[in-house]
Nucleic acid binder design. Structure first.
Lengths: 114, 114
DNA sequence: TTCATGTGCAACTCAAGGATTGCACATCGG
DNA sequence: CCGATGTGCAATCCTTGAGTTGCACATGAA
């Protein structure tokens, strides 16, 4: 159940951890559907490296691939990113909540000590 | 300016990419202030490894350290996480926007072809 | 002071993954 | 059919980073 989310988050964060992959996502987002070969012309790495990155992005749910004739078109895919963003927001909120609780307790203790 | 955000995001995502570090953050969030030695008792890795992880987390702005006598207490720090969550939400929204635009254009072309 | 406990620094091991290269296979255009 | 272009697969190199170990230093408690 919630393990799905954990897996999603795990994959997305792992995929986003690499700068080259983030760059590729930017290119995909701006250019729409593109092939790995096209991307290779705009990035200082080999086509093969890009194919691997795209595979990681696709496995993480951040990209989709579609075959059109002899070429493969890749595009961005927002769902997993959205889910991860929500997860992160919830986590940050949780941290805020806990820290606020700790602070309240500390202030209460401070008050008692006087 | 916005490079600050990029650096923050870069650090946070890089820090969150490691499962052990995410686990440490969970422990910090639940236990409040703890020492590296205490954390080492609850995680199957050495204290030194944990110290390194905590250093990464602190560099990423996800944790703070405070010296109390001879021990060092670590705690969670929500700001950078919040900023990254907002960045990610904005990015996802941007993707949605672009995909919606592409879809509109495709539908218009479809309509014209009939 | 003396012992125990907690940190810090440094060198080292080792596996993971980013990147390249070479070649074989598929597909489109002439 | 045939050359050109785009993909896929596999072996390899090499850097990065997670983890360990050993030891020196600092601080608290007896």
């Amino acid at each position: 159940m919630t393990d799905d989310i954990r897996d999603t988050v795990d994959g997305v964060i792992g995929a986003l951890a690499d700068p080259t992959r983030r760059h590729l996502l930017d290119l995909l987002a701006t250019h729409g559907e593109v092939t790995a070969t096209t991307l290779a012309e705009q990035v200082p790495v080999s086509r093969q490296a890009i194919v691997k990155h795209l595979a990681v992005l696709e496995a993480a749910g951040l990209a989709t691939s579609r075959k059109s004739g002899r070429e493969v078109l890749y595009a961005v895919r927002p769902d997993a990113l959205n889910a991860t963003a929500r997860w992160m927001t919830a986590l940050a909120t949780e941290w805020d909540r806990r820290l606020a609780a700790v602070k309240r307790i500390a202030e209460a203790a401070e008050r008692d000590s006087r």
